[in-house]
Design a protein around this nucleic acid. Structure first.
Lengths: 162, 162
DNA sequence: GCAGCGTGGTTGATTCTTCAACTAGGCGTC
DNA sequence: GACGCCTAGTTGAAGAATCAACCACGCTGC
C-alpha cells in the first residue's frame, strides 16, 4: 500500500521560488553560453572545465575529480575533454601510480585562453546576475544555495571544509 | 579605448553564491529529468510544456506564448511539440483570426498523462529542493530569484502582475 | 595466484538543442 | 495595391548530452 492521501501542492511562495529557479536555470546558462560562444567559441561548461583545471594545483586533475568539480558525469566530461584536447587546450596523461586513472592537464594555450576570457566572463556574471542583488541577497543566496546543493549531493565538493 | 582597469573578481560570498547556483543548475534538472524519465519517459522540459498547457484557459496557447512560459526558443519548442504530437498528447491548430499563429492544444490523453504525473513530480520537487529550506528561505529565494529573472528578462511572464 | 567485485574511464548510438535559413502572413506607407 | 519590414513558426544540419555497454585495472579473500 502506498500513500493515497492528496499530494501537498505548492503554496504561492513555494511556487514563486520554484518558477524563478526553473527560469533562471534556463535563462542564465543560455545567456552566458552565447556570451562565451561569441568571445571564444566555447560553452559555459567548457569554460568551467578549463577554470577548474586552472585553479588546481599543478593545473591538472584526475577525470573523476574534474567531473565532480564541474558537476558532470564522467561520460559528458570525457567527450568534452576530447574536444578541448583537439583544440590544444587540454592534454590527457596516464596517472603514474594508478593505471586506471587518467589526468587532464591544462596546456599553456589552454591557460592563455582562460586568462584571456576570464575578465570578460566575470563582467558578464556580474552584469547578468550579481549586479541585480544587494550584499544581503548574495549572503542569503549563498546560504540557501548551499543548503540545496547539500540536499542534491551531500558530498558535493563546494561543501568540503576548506 | 576600452576599460583597461583590473576586473573586479568575485569576493568569497559572491563566489559561494555563484558556485552554488551553477551547481544547482546542473544537479537539479538532471535529478528531475531522471525521475520523470523513469515515471513517464519525458524530460522536465516536456513536463513543463504540458503543465503550462494544462493550466492555460481552454488548455491551449499560441506557440510563442507557450515558448515564453517555458523559457524556451520557438525552435526548441517547435521540435518538442512535434514529438509530443507524435505521442498524442498535443495537437497543433491554426489560429482562427491570425493565419501566422499556430496554437498548441493539450489532448485528453495529454491531460491524463500530466494528471497522473503531477503528484509524483510535486513530491520530487519537495524532496529534492523545497524540503531543504525553511519558510524564510523560500521567501528569500522567491525574492532573490525574481530579481535575477528580472535582470535576465525584464518582461518575463512570471513577473507579470497577476 | 586467481576469481570476483568495485572503480575509473571511454565509446557509439540515440536523443536533444541550437543555429541559420526559410516560408508565410500581417501591417504601414506611399 | 505593392513595397518593405516585422512577427510567427518550421525545418534540416551540426553540435552536445545521455545512456548503456564495455574495457582495464586494483583490491580482497581464498
Amino acid at each position: 500500500m502506498w500513500d493515497m492521501t492528496e499530494p501537498r501542492w505548492l503554496n504561492a511562495d513555494e511556487r514563486r521560488a520554484w518558477l524563478a529557479l526553473v527560469s533562471i536555470n534556463t535563462l542564465l546558462p543560455a545567456a552566458l553560453d552565447t556570451k562565451l560562444h561569441t568571445a571564444g567559441k566555447l560553452s559555459l561548461f567548457d569554460y568551467t572545465v578549463l577554470a577548474m583545471l586552472s585553479e588546481a594545483e599543478g593545473r591538472f586533475l584526475p577525470m573523476s575529480e574534474l567531473a565532480a568539480r564541474s558537476s558532470a558525469s564522467l561520460s559528458r566530461l570525457s567527450h568534452v575533454v576530447t574536444k578541448l584536447q583537439k583544440r590544444g587546450w587540454v592534454e590527457r596523461r596516464p596517472h603514474p601510480h594508478d593505471a586506471r586513472v587518467t589526468t587532464a592537464h591544462l596546456t599553456e594555450e589552454g591557460m592563455a585562453t582562460i586568462v584571456g576570457l576570464a575578465p570578460g566572463h566575470v563582467e558578464d556574471v556580474r552584469d547578468l546576475f550579481l549586479d541585480a542583488l544587494t550584499e544581503q541577497d548574495v549572503l542569503d543566496l549563498a546560504r540557501i544555495g548551499e543548503k540545496v546543493v547539500g540536499r542534491l549531493d551531500a558530498d558535493h565538493w563546494i561543501l568540503r571544509e576548506s
